[in-house]
Simulated assay, not measured.
Amino acid sequence: MICTPLIKPLQPLVRHTRTPRVWLFDLDNTLHDASHAIFGHINQSMTRAVMQSLDIGEEEASALRKTYWARYGATLIGMVRHHNVKAADFLHLSHDFDIAGNTKIEKNLSAMLNAVPGIKYVVTNAPMHYARIVLDRLNVRHCFAGICSINEMCLQGRFRPKPSPALMQQLLVQLQCEPTRTILVEDTLKNLKTAKLLNMKTVHIFHRGTPFSSTQRMRPAYVDLRVNSVQQLLTHPFALSA
């Protein structure tokens, strides 16, 4: 069982066979449709967390949240760097809602994941407690050997979430995997661009609810495969070939 500073095991009693092929799956709008209900709750909860942490009004908190997300890729980073907010406290506040009840079930996802050759991990900018609840609700936690959540994405004392090249490079080192045999599955193009620069394989799950998706008309050169859902990927020859 792989356990590194970046990767934490999801199922201590499950043993995954080591293979040369490694899958890194994003979570929201990749393994499940977060735009169905989850993202609305996260937006509200995130703004409320900024308000409570800084004792400011909703309008100011909303603007600050969006500024930090655009600048750093995660509101958490701005809150930690500029306001000395404790990361664990903020991650809890920003995802404090009925997660399981708002997670849309994806039919047959567990069976399809298990049918695809290769060892699989979750790599998400979401917090660990949120990711575990979603994976349990989807009934797929047992399909993955481990997870890298934003809780672990800290290098040299600073949070480095996706699309950080340093993060992706460290993941490859700690998993001891060959970049050309490692596949990143994502709904966010900038994360896939970083992966391709490191010679990884890339799969784009196109989702209309993902920010800036309206500009994603064509498949960029750094994307090896573009599909409209994780189910489409898992039944594609790209995934099923060993």
Rank of each mutant, 00 (worst) to 15 (best):
I56M: 13
L135V: 01
Q174K: 08
L113G: 00
T124S: 09
R18W: 15
T17P: 07
V230A: 04
G40M: 03
Q11N: 15
K86P: 05
P12T: 09
Q216G: 12
R48I: 02
I133V: 11
P237N: 07
S213E: 03
L24T: 04
C177A: 01
Q170T: 03
V14C: 15
K196S: 13
K107N: 12
T19H: 11
F39M: 11
A61T: 01
Q156C: 10
L109G: 02
A49S: 08
P9Y: 13
E178H: 07
L184N: 01
F97I: 06
A49N: 01
G146E: 01
L31N: 03
F25A: 11
V134R: 04
I147P: 00
L27D: 00
Q232Y: 10
A195W: 06
V223D: 07
G146V: 05
M168G: 00
S53V: 12
G73W: 15
M128S: 12
D55G: 14
K162W: 00
F206W: 09
F25Q: 08
P163M: 10
D187L: 00
I133D: 04
H32S: 05
G146A: 07
R81P: 00
Q156V: 12
T75E: 05
T180I: 05
L155F: 05
K196P: 03
A111E: 10
C154W: 10
Y222I: 13
V185T: 06
M168F: 13
G57H: 08
E178K: 09
R18H: 15
H41D: 07
L76D: 05
K8F: 11
L138N: 00
P211T: 04
S94E: 00
F144R: 02
H41P: 03
K193Y: 12
F238S: 06
N29V: 05
N102C: 15
H95R: 05
D55A: 05
P237C: 12
L109V: 04
H82R: 09
F144C: 04
Y130E: 01
L155P: 05
L6S: 04
H129W: 06
I105W: 10
I205T: 07
V173K: 07
R137G: 14
A126S: 03
A88I: 06
R15A: 15
G101R: 01
E178M: 08
N102E: 06
P211G: 13
L31M: 14
P117I: 11
L109I: 07
N43C: 02
F144M: 04
L31I: 09
D55T: 13
L167E: 02
S241Q: 14
Y68T: 10
V85C: 02
V185C: 01
M200F: 04
M200L: 06
